Amino acid sequence: MKAVFLDTQSLDDLDLSPLADCVETLVCYPTTSPEQVAERIAGFELVITNKVVLDADLIRNADSLQLICVVATGVNTIDLTAATARGITVCNSQGYGVQSVAQHVLSLMLALHTRLLDYDRAVRRGDWNRSSQFCLLDYPILELNGRTLGIVGYGALGQEVARLARCFGMQVMIAARPGSTSIPADRVALETVLSQADVISLHCPLTEATHHLIDAPALARMKAGSFLINAARGGIVDETALKDALCSGHLGGAATDVLSEEPPRQGNILLDPAIPNLIITPHSAWGSVQARQTIIEQTVENIRGFLQQTSVRRVN
């Protein structure tokens, strides 16, 4: 197959030779603008993309296209209806970042509880130099042991975060699926989780049902002084409401790896440096070397499966 990779930028520090070895031709571009897509996919049987959008018009006019491989889990950038109508197979990557994201979530949780960033900044501005004693204890430090973690979204990521949290002595509550009419025996109503957990960690997909799931009323239900962690999608949290909850002191802190628009070229309300005890990382939780190399390996499996007519991770 003749293949084109439209946006290698988040993977181009890795070994892409396995991809090249399983196709006849591989053309790679670090990035591709919307205006460049039609020209770049013309004549190719395989298109590999991460975040480049392939809409219905592009798919209908790509006469040679047979296979689309998305080097991510989400396929919202692909018009699946148009692809299916054309008989084009769409495959994605799955489960590659479980360890990487779970590790990041625990890092954020620990940083909030130990006030790690506050102490680092305090030392750098000379507060320790001026201390009247051998240590500096200006910010309250909390232990994970004995605290309760509420998890919203209990797929592979949520399960791994729960496992790691239990290793630190935390109790774990699993929220029932938002909007569900019945609550399984091993789940707890979301409202109860919000009101009883010391830490809420989000791992659910962004859908119509979960958009602004954590809004002002939900934040108000959370325990005073509790923490919120979002390594899922930015739109799940009402960012204005989160800022208000932090600035008012109702929440003890928050950490997010995602924002409603990424990158935040137009700014974002959460980037206000006056917001207390908020940690923001740049959608990097998934990005360990191991996780990203797994994406390459899974894409190779997807291509070989298609060629052998045993498609792997097919989504349409």
Score class of each variant (00 low, 15 high):
D257N: 06
H211C: 13
R86Q: 14
M222H: 08
R40T: 01
M173P: 01
V188P: 00
G287V: 05
L106Y: 02
S180Y: 05
R40V: 01
I200Q: 04
Q290G: 04
S107A: 15
A209I: 01
A85E: 15
V289W: 12
I303P: 02
D12S: 14
L259M: 14
V199M: 09
H211S: 12
G153R: 02
Q309N: 13
A20I: 01
S226E: 10
L271Y: 05
A197N: 02
A285E: 08
H283F: 10
R147S: 12
A245F: 10
E261S: 14
T114S: 14
R147Y: 00
P217T: 09
L278W: 03
R163A: 13
P184Q: 04
V300R: 09
A111N: 09
E39M: 07
L219S: 07
L142R: 08
T256G: 07
Q266E: 12
V4M: 05
D244T: 15
T207C: 02
Y119G: 08
D13S: 14
H211K: 14
S10C: 11
C28M: 14
Q293F: 04
A285P: 11
G146S: 01
P276N: 11
A255K: 03
A122Y: 04
T114A: 11
T207L: 15
A111P: 09
G153S: 07
A156L: 13
V53E: 08
L270Q: 06
S33V: 01
S311L: 00
S10N: 13
V70K: 09
S226A: 15
E24H: 10
G267L: 05
G235I: 10
C69T: 10
I279D: 05
D272G: 05
A102R: 02
L80E: 07
A20Q: 14
M173N: 07
D120K: 13
T299A: 12
T31H: 10
A241F: 09
V152F: 01
V27E: 15
D186P: 01
A111T: 11
Q133K: 13
G95Y: 06
S131R: 02
D186Y: 08
A241G: 14
D21M: 07
P18F: 04
S100K: 05
D244I: 13
D12Q: 15
S248L: 10
L65T: 10
S201T: 10
V37I: 08
Q133E: 12
D238A: 15
L206K: 06
Q133F: 10
L246W: 06
A82H: 06
L164C: 07
K51H: 05
L164E: 02
R124W: 01
E160R: 14
L164P: 06
A218H: 08
E297I: 04
R265P: 00
I174R: 14
G169P: 09
D118N: 15
L219Y: 06
A241V: 10
D21K: 15
L271H: 06
T114C: 11
S201H: 02
I296A: 09
S182T: 15
W286H: 11
R187T: 04
I78D: 05
D79A: 10
A83Q: 08
V37F: 01
R163K: 14
E39D: 14
V289S: 12
